[in-house]
Design a binder for these strands. Structure first.
Length: 297
DNA sequence: GAAACGTGGTT
DNA sequence: TAACCAAGTTT
């Protein structure tokens, strides 16, 4: 339960004021002339990915595919190749599918409402809310890892939020949002920005925080995280590593590649074969005759 | 609800 | 160095 003693209006004023002064205004998808498509692209690219790596790829994509129709008209493999090393390359495929859906169902435009956005491939609760808010000014409840951490600290006095987002936390985020539309829209981006720049997971810069004197966690002496263990993700020797290596080779090939040049993408040939199968099943690679592979045409 | 899904910088 | 973490989504 949130502390009812914390005056939300003061929190809103401080956080929004801080954003006006300290928020990153140079991010291209925050420019006044940014299109909904540009915002959409930035949100999908930013899933689980630091913005510093997103920006150069975003610029390349916007120059090459400035509208949904442009991407829909390209080969899916071109999207996968242009994705480069951003990670989670299925996002590139889903972006291509989403662009196609926009052309077929939405007159080539990014849909404006939450429901239609949520129906697009690769768009979940966060991305639907973020695009609806940031591209179209709808006061959605936008909840990402930054928002969750800031609210856990300021309102609940906890070092980190629970492992998984639950109903109570969503309700809390809704209650914490300003009622007035413009303030709510600024709040959404401002809280995220505060979490990204100041209220970070490790080594929070509370001395720079505009709400340090209101923050339940800070006022309580910043107690350590005491929830259930947060499992890290294995990497070395996993299918993910092998899939990544296979895809890296195909991206760099610019033509079809024989199995022989892929079979050492991992230590275990059986694992490599399994990963090739799963990549085909995902639509990320295309099998050709005589055991050759390429990015999907 | 848990697990899979990339990649690279930071601690 | 190993672990953590990053504007999550899908199955």
């Amino acid at each position: 339960m949130p502390s009812r003693e914390l005056p939300l209006s003061l929190l809103h004023e401080r956080v929004n004021g801080w954003y006006a002064e300290a928020g990153r205004k140079e991010l291209p998808w925050r420019a006044p002339d940014a299109t909904p498509w540009g915002v959409f692209l930035s949100e999908v690219m930013s899933q689980q990915t630091p913005l510093s790596r997103v920006e150069p790829i975003w610029r390349e994509w916007m120059a090459r595919w400035p509208t949904p129709a442009d991407l829909a008209g390209a080969a899916p493999g071109d999207a996968v190749r242009a994705w480069g090393r951003l990670g989670y390359p299925r996002r590139a495929l889903r972006l291509h599918e989403a662009a196609t859906a926009m052309v077929e169902r939405h007159d080539g435009e990014v849909p404006r409402d939450h429901e239609a956005l949520l129906a697009l491939p690769g768009v979940g609760a966060y991305t639907a809310a973020a695009v609806s808010c940031f591209a179209f000014g709808n006061p959605e409840v936008v909840i990402d890892t930054n928002v969750r951490r800031v609210l856990a600290r300021t309102l609940e006095g906890k070092a980190l939020p629970h492992v998984t987002l639950n109903r109570a936390e969503s309700d809390l985020a809704r209650e914490a949002m300003p009622a007035e539309r413009d303030r709510a829209n600024t709040w959404n981006v401002a809280v995220m920005e505060l979490g990204a720049l100041v209220c970070v997971a490790r080594g929070p810069r509370c001395e720079q925080c505009p709400v340090a004197d209101l923050c339940a966690w800070n006022l309580d002496g910043r107690p350590a995280y005491d929830g259930p263990p947060r499992r890290g993700q294995a990497w070395h020797g996993t299918d993910r590593q092998v899939r990544g290596e296979i895809l890296r080779r195909l991206r760099e090939a610019h033509a079809s590649v024989p199995l022989a040049t892929l079979v050492d993408a991992g230590d275990d040939p059986d694992q490599v074969m399994r990963c090739l199968d799963s990549l085909v099943a995902d639509g990320l690679i295309e099998p050709l005759a005589r055991g050759r592979f390429r990015l999907p045409a």
